[in-house]
Amino acid sequence: MSFDFSLIAESLPLMLMGIGITFKLLVISGVLGFCLAVGLLLMRISGKWYLNFPAQVYIYVFRGTPILVQIFIIYYGLPQFEWIRDSVFWAVLREPTGCAILALTLNTGAYVSEILRGGVLGVGKGLLEAGSALGMSARQKFIYITTPIAARLALPAYSNDVISLLKSTALASTITIADMTGIARTIVADTYAPYEIFMSLAIIYMIFTFGLQKLFGVIERYLGRYSRREG
Protein backbone atom coordinates (compact mmCIF):
# COMPACT_ATOMS: atom_id res chain seq x y z
CA MET A 1 0.00 0.00 0.00
CA SER A 2 1.79 3.12 -1.12
CA PHE A 3 1.32 6.69 -0.07
CA ASP A 4 0.61 8.82 -3.06
CA PHE A 5 2.20 12.17 -2.37
CA SER A 6 1.55 13.50 -5.83
CA LEU A 7 -2.14 13.02 -5.22
CA ILE A 8 -1.88 15.12 -2.10
CA ALA A 9 -0.05 17.81 -4.01
CA GLU A 10 -2.83 17.90 -6.60
CA SER A 11 -5.67 17.80 -4.12
CA LEU A 12 -4.47 20.33 -1.59
CA PRO A 13 -5.23 23.40 -3.69
CA LEU A 14 -8.69 22.00 -4.43
CA MET A 15 -9.44 21.43 -0.77
CA LEU A 16 -8.09 24.82 0.17
CA MET A 17 -10.60 26.38 -2.18
CA GLY A 18 -13.14 25.30 0.37
CA ILE A 19 -11.41 27.23 3.12
CA GLY A 20 -13.34 30.34 2.23
CA ILE A 21 -16.63 28.60 2.88
CA THR A 22 -15.33 27.02 6.08
CA PHE A 23 -14.19 30.41 7.27
CA LYS A 24 -17.47 32.04 6.32
CA LEU A 25 -19.49 29.43 8.19
CA LEU A 26 -17.23 29.78 11.23
CA VAL A 27 -17.26 33.55 11.45
CA ILE A 28 -20.90 34.23 10.66
CA SER A 29 -22.21 31.47 12.91
CA GLY A 30 -19.71 32.45 15.57
CA VAL A 31 -20.75 36.08 15.67
CA LEU A 32 -24.49 35.49 15.38
CA GLY A 33 -24.24 32.64 17.85
CA PHE A 34 -22.47 34.91 20.33
CA CYS A 35 -25.21 37.52 20.07
CA LEU A 36 -27.81 34.84 20.63
CA ALA A 37 -25.80 33.57 23.58
CA VAL A 38 -25.75 36.99 25.23
CA GLY A 39 -29.51 37.24 24.77
CA LEU A 40 -30.05 33.82 26.31
CA LEU A 41 -27.70 34.67 29.16
CA LEU A 42 -29.63 37.81 30.03
CA MET A 43 -32.82 35.78 29.98
CA ARG A 44 -31.26 33.18 32.26
CA ILE A 45 -30.04 35.66 34.85
CA SER A 46 -33.02 37.98 34.65
CA GLY A 47 -34.66 36.35 37.67
CA LYS A 48 -37.99 36.33 35.83
CA TRP A 49 -39.39 32.85 35.35
CA TYR A 50 -41.05 33.64 32.03
CA LEU A 51 -37.65 34.55 30.59
CA ASN A 52 -35.52 32.05 32.46
CA PHE A 53 -37.64 28.98 31.75
CA PRO A 54 -37.87 29.27 27.94
CA ALA A 55 -34.14 29.97 27.79
CA GLN A 56 -33.44 26.89 29.89
CA VAL A 57 -35.62 24.73 27.66
CA TYR A 58 -33.95 26.06 24.52
CA ILE A 59 -30.47 25.41 25.89
CA TYR A 60 -31.46 21.96 27.09
CA VAL A 61 -32.82 20.94 23.69
CA PHE A 62 -29.95 22.32 21.65
CA ARG A 63 -27.26 20.90 23.87
CA GLY A 64 -29.02 17.57 24.23
CA THR A 65 -29.41 16.72 20.55
CA PRO A 66 -26.70 16.07 17.95
CA ILE A 67 -25.87 19.00 15.73
CA LEU A 68 -26.21 16.80 12.68
CA VAL A 69 -29.86 16.22 13.56
CA GLN A 70 -30.36 19.96 13.96
CA ILE A 71 -28.82 20.58 10.54
CA PHE A 72 -30.99 17.94 8.92
CA ILE A 73 -34.16 19.23 10.57
CA ILE A 74 -33.51 22.68 9.19
CA TYR A 75 -32.31 21.71 5.74
CA TYR A 76 -34.42 18.65 4.96
CA GLY A 77 -37.22 19.14 7.45
CA LEU A 78 -38.38 22.72 7.13
CA PRO A 79 -39.27 22.51 3.43
CA GLN A 80 -41.99 20.07 4.53
CA PHE A 81 -44.06 23.07 5.53
CA GLU A 82 -45.70 25.12 2.84
CA TRP A 83 -45.84 28.23 4.97
CA ILE A 84 -42.07 28.15 5.22
CA ARG A 85 -41.69 27.81 1.50
CA ASP A 86 -44.01 30.77 1.02
CA SER A 87 -42.35 33.00 3.61
CA VAL A 88 -39.66 35.63 3.22
CA PHE A 89 -37.17 33.35 4.95
CA TRP A 90 -37.30 30.88 2.11
CA ALA A 91 -34.56 32.68 0.21
CA VAL A 92 -32.20 31.86 3.04
CA LEU A 93 -33.59 28.48 4.02
CA ARG A 94 -33.58 27.13 0.51
CA GLU A 95 -29.83 27.39 0.30
CA PRO A 96 -27.75 24.80 2.13
CA THR A 97 -25.35 27.51 3.28
CA GLY A 98 -28.15 29.48 4.90
CA CYS A 99 -29.42 26.37 6.62
CA ALA A 100 -25.96 25.44 7.84
CA ILE A 101 -25.37 28.91 9.26
CA LEU A 102 -28.75 28.87 10.98
CA ALA A 103 -28.18 25.46 12.52
CA LEU A 104 -24.64 26.26 13.66
CA THR A 105 -25.78 29.59 15.11
CA LEU A 106 -28.65 28.10 17.07
CA ASN A 107 -26.39 25.35 18.36
CA THR A 108 -23.38 27.38 19.36
CA GLY A 109 -25.65 30.01 20.92
CA ALA A 110 -26.88 27.45 23.42
CA TYR A 111 -23.40 26.25 24.38
CA VAL A 112 -21.86 29.70 24.59
CA SER A 113 -24.65 31.05 26.77
CA GLU A 114 -23.89 28.40 29.37
CA ILE A 115 -20.20 29.23 29.13
CA LEU A 116 -20.94 32.91 29.70
CA ARG A 117 -23.22 32.01 32.58
CA GLY A 118 -20.39 30.06 34.14
CA GLY A 119 -18.26 33.17 33.92
CA VAL A 120 -20.93 35.34 35.49
CA LEU A 121 -21.40 32.91 38.35
CA GLY A 122 -17.66 32.94 38.94
CA VAL A 123 -17.53 36.63 39.78
CA GLY A 124 -16.82 36.89 43.50
CA LYS A 125 -19.88 37.80 45.54
CA GLY A 126 -17.80 40.17 47.66
CA LEU A 127 -16.99 42.30 44.64
CA LEU A 128 -20.65 42.81 43.88
CA GLU A 129 -21.31 43.63 47.54
CA ALA A 130 -18.58 46.24 47.40
CA GLY A 131 -20.32 47.71 44.36
CA SER A 132 -23.64 47.74 46.21
CA ALA A 133 -22.07 49.32 49.27
CA LEU A 134 -20.69 52.07 47.03
CA GLY A 135 -24.19 52.72 45.79
CA MET A 136 -23.87 51.28 42.28
CA SER A 137 -27.07 50.21 40.53
CA ALA A 138 -27.63 46.65 39.32
CA ARG A 139 -27.02 47.75 35.74
CA GLN A 140 -23.80 49.54 36.68
CA LYS A 141 -22.53 46.54 38.58
CA PHE A 142 -23.25 44.27 35.62
CA ILE A 143 -21.41 46.49 33.14
CA TYR A 144 -18.39 47.56 35.17
CA ILE A 145 -17.83 44.62 37.50
CA THR A 146 -19.49 41.44 36.23
CA THR A 147 -18.83 41.70 32.50
CA PRO A 148 -15.06 42.32 32.52
CA ILE A 149 -14.40 39.62 35.12
CA ALA A 150 -16.81 37.07 33.62
CA ALA A 151 -15.26 37.57 30.18
CA ARG A 152 -11.84 36.63 31.48
CA LEU A 153 -13.20 33.62 33.36
CA ALA A 154 -15.21 32.35 30.38
CA LEU A 155 -12.48 32.77 27.80
CA PRO A 156 -10.79 29.35 28.00
CA ALA A 157 -14.09 27.50 27.70
CA TYR A 158 -15.18 29.86 24.94
CA SER A 159 -12.05 29.21 22.92
CA ASN A 160 -12.79 25.48 23.16
CA ASP A 161 -16.26 26.12 21.84
CA VAL A 162 -14.96 28.08 18.87
CA ILE A 163 -12.76 25.14 17.99
CA SER A 164 -15.78 22.85 18.28
CA LEU A 165 -17.62 25.20 15.97
CA LEU A 166 -14.82 24.91 13.44
CA LYS A 167 -15.11 21.14 13.56
CA SER A 168 -18.88 21.33 13.20
CA THR A 169 -18.54 23.28 9.98
CA ALA A 170 -17.29 20.06 8.43
CA LEU A 171 -20.80 18.70 8.82
CA ALA A 172 -21.94 21.21 6.24
CA SER A 173 -20.54 18.75 3.74
CA THR A 174 -23.39 16.40 4.57
CA ILE A 175 -25.87 18.82 3.04
CA THR A 176 -23.95 19.29 -0.20
CA ILE A 177 -21.91 22.32 0.78
CA ALA A 178 -18.52 22.40 -0.91
CA ASP A 179 -16.44 23.30 2.10
CA MET A 180 -13.06 21.66 2.62
CA THR A 181 -14.58 18.40 3.81
CA GLY A 182 -17.13 18.38 1.03
CA ILE A 183 -14.46 18.78 -1.61
CA ALA A 184 -12.32 16.14 0.05
CA ARG A 185 -15.14 13.61 0.05
CA THR A 186 -15.70 14.20 -3.65
CA ILE A 187 -12.03 13.62 -4.36
CA VAL A 188 -11.98 10.46 -2.28
CA ALA A 189 -15.03 9.15 -4.08
CA ASP A 190 -13.18 9.58 -7.36
CA THR A 191 -9.76 8.38 -6.37
CA TYR A 192 -10.41 5.79 -3.63
CA ALA A 193 -7.51 7.29 -1.68
CA PRO A 194 -8.98 8.06 1.72
CA TYR A 195 -5.70 8.00 3.61
CA GLU A 196 -3.91 10.61 1.56
CA ILE A 197 -6.85 12.93 1.21
CA PHE A 198 -8.45 12.70 4.62
CA MET A 199 -5.15 12.82 6.45
CA SER A 200 -4.00 15.93 4.63
CA LEU A 201 -7.43 17.44 5.30
CA ALA A 202 -7.05 16.60 8.98
CA ILE A 203 -3.71 18.39 8.97
CA ILE A 204 -5.31 21.46 7.46
CA TYR A 205 -7.92 21.51 10.22
CA MET A 206 -5.25 21.02 12.84
CA ILE A 207 -3.33 23.99 11.53
CA PHE A 208 -6.52 26.03 11.61
CA THR A 209 -7.14 24.90 15.21
CA PHE A 210 -3.59 25.75 16.17
CA GLY A 211 -4.03 29.23 14.74
CA LEU A 212 -7.23 29.74 16.73
CA GLN A 213 -5.56 28.56 19.93
CA LYS A 214 -2.71 30.99 19.44
CA LEU A 215 -5.17 33.81 18.78
CA PHE A 216 -7.08 33.07 21.96
CA GLY A 217 -3.81 32.82 23.85
CA VAL A 218 -3.06 36.40 22.90
CA ILE A 219 -6.54 37.54 23.92
CA GLU A 220 -6.25 35.66 27.22
CA ARG A 221 -2.95 37.32 28.00
CA TYR A 222 -4.37 40.73 27.23
CA LEU A 223 -7.53 40.27 29.31
CA GLY A 224 -5.67 38.71 32.19
CA ARG A 225 -3.02 41.41 32.49
CA TYR A 226 -4.38 42.57 35.83
CA SER A 227 -4.05 39.12 37.37
CA ARG A 228 -0.31 38.79 37.00
CA ARG A 229 1.90 40.21 39.68
CA GLU A 230 4.71 41.59 37.56
CA GLY A 231 3.95 45.19 36.78
Binding site: G126, I145, Y226
Partner: peptide, 24 residues
Amino acid sequence: FQSFNLFPHMTIVKNLMLAQQLVR
Protein backbone atom coordinates in the same frame (compact mmCIF):
# COMPACT_ATOMS: atom_id res chain seq x y z
CA PHE B 1 -14.92 44.37 54.06
CA GLN B 2 -12.84 41.64 55.62
CA SER B 3 -11.74 40.44 52.18
CA PHE B 4 -11.10 43.98 50.84
CA ASN B 5 -13.13 43.33 47.66
CA LEU B 6 -11.11 45.66 45.47
CA PHE B 7 -12.09 45.37 41.81
CA PRO B 8 -9.26 43.19 40.47
CA HIS B 9 -9.57 44.29 36.87
CA MET B 10 -9.04 48.01 37.59
CA THR B 11 -6.05 49.99 38.74
CA ILE B 12 -6.06 51.36 42.27
CA VAL B 13 -6.96 54.86 41.22
CA LYS B 14 -9.73 53.56 38.93
CA ASN B 15 -11.09 51.55 41.88
CA LEU B 16 -11.41 54.84 43.75
CA MET B 17 -12.85 56.78 40.84
CA LEU B 18 -15.47 54.38 39.52
CA ALA B 19 -18.26 54.85 42.08
CA GLN B 20 -17.64 58.58 42.25
CA GLN B 21 -18.31 58.89 38.55
CA LEU B 22 -21.20 56.45 38.38
CA VAL B 23 -23.02 57.16 41.63
CA ARG B 24 -22.10 60.70 42.57
